[in-house]
Design a protein around this nucleic acid. Structure first.
Length: 557
RNA sequence: UGGGGCGUAGCCAAGUGGUAAGGCAUCGGGUUUUGAUCCCGUGUACCGCAGGUUCGAAUCCUGCCGCCCCAGCCA
């Protein structure tokens, strides 16, 4: 499905919304994307982003970006900034709809007091350990805390003192009074406020008690008049609690929560906790390492945002959790790049060729014309300088060619793309027997790569002029994990791919490649899609491989 | 022996009682100055299993099996 018929998307969530609209339930559809600013956005978030913003767009509604900042010990302004940047890059506008759960701290506090006054919440002085043992287990009911029947007045007083900073962290907490027998552990008197003597990125030292997710989320939705609160499957059994608060509080609206399955991608991990560990342990260089499935990593790798949007759109939205093959993602990326990327030539592992019958005069200027993008005439042509000494890819030559190898070999003729037909006359080796140079002859009549007499050449090779090309470093990225599902045979960290990065430092680029900035991905013909790294300079060019071209030849051999 | 979900080809996924869409992958073939792209073709899916209802069930009922999530003062 392409983005053009986005409106045709049909999944259980959109079905529910259409039903609600038909039943005239809402004036306007409102959704929200609620990241916790404790890490960078990854492609799994992109699914939620496209769903929430997409739904709002399709039904002429609204989608708020709401930072769920209720845990100051884990959150940071740098993440808030990074999330905004990534969201904009992905192509979504939220400037007028930014919210923070911390905007509602005052209201949330009042609601907590409302709950106390209704006898539906109490201050507990159980320690975290005690609370755990009182909670029971999956199969045994919990037992009630001794504090459970504290007088309302005392609860009010204690809660006020919690707020005033009279207690240490962990000494007191505010709990909802629900049901210690419930089969749903979330309903066994969940903590709704805890003490944290921590500085908050936005409210600074105004508070030393902070609401828990369950107490903050639904009510924030209600404040924002969210109609459809879309979250992932693991929150399914939080829904009764979500509804319990809305039921028992004087809230302004009644949002509904719906859950869909989160995205799992093979050969990578989509967990902020684990991603952070990869960084901390030095397996990658940071959140924006090109191997990371983060939006920042994918961007640096050269993946266009359109491809990400299209990819998550193709997956659909369901409640069944599966694992999507990485190759599916790569294919979507190739599909976009194939039509948009300009073509250039670069040689990764150079093998020098001297064309013996080519003019030796250094003043001789031989300019050839090359198409920039066969899929887009508007990209026009460029001029390529040819010369007597060129580089081709080392593996485009075989001294003893196998039957189906149709590239260069002794006595064989191939075409140099946009240039000439050449024949290999001699193979030159060093003392160890390594091939270090080829001596060839070219056919002047084949200029442009044409075959003047109609003779067939099976191979067309990319090349670069030895004297005119620019030396560069090229990073080839492979899968971050060797296992499709990291950790399926033990510790996930053991499955980190030791060769996820191959850095080649003796590569040669056609000069015009240096004109491309890191936000433009181009194709190196016959190799793949590449883009300039963030740290690339004119003096020290560095290019990252976004994704290789499909290679059915390599596959067979 | 608790609660909540999910189970349609290798992967994603339509389907909502009338006799199994589509995409990706795979494998063939054609075109090609990128072994890319493009174009054609290619799958016996015991619709988790077993019963039942029905003229007819992936779709309804019952029972079973498998997988995922939940015992943070994380989100």
């Amino acid at each position: 499905m392409t983005e053009k018929n986005l409106s045709q998307k049909n999944d259980f969530i959109r079905e529910i919304i259409r039903g609600d609209i038909a039943a005239n339930l809402h004036e306007k559809i409102v959704t929200r994307f609620p990241p916790e600013p404790n890490g960078y956005l990854h492609i799994g978030h992109a699914k939620s982003i496209c769903l929430n913003f997409g739904v709002a767009q399709e039904f002429q509604g609204l989608c708020n970006l709401r930072f769920d900042d209720t845990n100051p010990t884990k959150e940071d302004q740098i993440y808030i900034d990074a999330i905004k940047f990534d969201l904009t890059w992905l192509g979504f506008n939220f400037e007028n709809n930014i919210r923070y759960t911390s905007d509602y701290f005052e209201q949330l506090y009042d609601w907590a007091i409302e709950l106390i006054n209704k006898g539906l919440a109490y201050v507990d002085d159980l320690s975290p350990d005690e609370m755990r043992s009182y909670r029971g287990t999956l199969t045994e009911p919990g037992i009630e805390s001794p504090s459970r029947n504290r007088e309302i007045a005392e609860n009010l007083d204690l809660f006020e003192r919690m707020k005033n900073g009279e207690f240490e962290e962990g000494k007191m907490s505010l709990r909802a009074k629900i049901d210690m027998q419930s089969g749903n552990l979330n309903l066994r008197d969940p903590v709704i406020y805890r003490i944290m003597h921590a500085n908050h990125p936005r409210t600074n030292n105004n508070w030393c008690i902070y609401p828990m997710y369950d107490f903050g989320h639904g009510q924030s939705d209600a404040i924002e008049n969210v109609t459809h609160s879309l979250c992932t499957l693991e929150f399914e059994d939080h829904r009764p609690l979500y509804e319990w608060f809305l039921e028992n509080l004087s809230i302004p609206s009644k949002p509904k929560q719906y859950e869909f399955s989160r995205l799992n991608l093979s050969h990578t991990i989509l967990s902020k906790r684990r991603l952070l560990k990869l960084i901390e342990c030095g397996y990658v260089t940071g959140w924006n390492d090109p191997r990371m499935p983060t939006l920042a990593g994918l961007r640096r790798r050269g993946v266009p945002p359109e491809a990400i949007r299209d990819f998550v759109g193709r997956l659909g939205v369901t409640k069944s959790d599966g694992i999507v093959e990485m190759s599916y993602f790569e294919n979507t990326v190739r599909e976009h790049l194939n039509v948009t990327a300009q073509r250039r030539m670069a040689v990764l592992n150079p093998l020098k060729i001297v064309i013996e019958n080519y003019p030796e005069d250094p003043q001789f200027k031989d300019e050839l014309e090359a198409t920039n993008n066969p899929n887009n005439e508007d990209d026009g042509f460029r001029r390529l300088l040819f010369s007597r000494e060129i580089y081709i890819e080392h593996n485009d030559f075989m001294e003893n060619p196998t039957k189906k190898f149709f590239r260069l070999g002794p006595g064989r003729e191939v075409r140099l793309r946009y240039a000439y037909l050449i024949i290999c006359k001699e193979v030159i080796k060093d003392k160890k027997g390594n091939i270090i140079e080829l001596r060839c002859h070219y056919d002047p009549a084949s200029r442009g790569g044409n075959s003047p007499d109609g003779r067939k050449v099976k191979g067309t090779l990319h090349w670069v002029s030895a004297n005119h090309s620019k030396k560069a470093t090229i990073n080839l990225y492979n899968e971050l994990f060797t296992e499709a599902i990291p950790g399926s045979n033990g510790d996930w960290i053991e499955d980190v791919n030791k060769t996820s990065l191959e850095s080649l430092t003796n590569c040669f680029l056609e000069p015009s490649i240096l004109d491309f900035k890191s936000n433009t991905t181009i194709q190196f013909e016959r190799l793949g899609y590449f883009c300039a790294d963030l740290n690339s300079t004119q003096e020290n060019p560095i290019f990252n491989r976004t994704v290789p071209l499909r290679d059915t030849w390599a596959k067979k051999t």
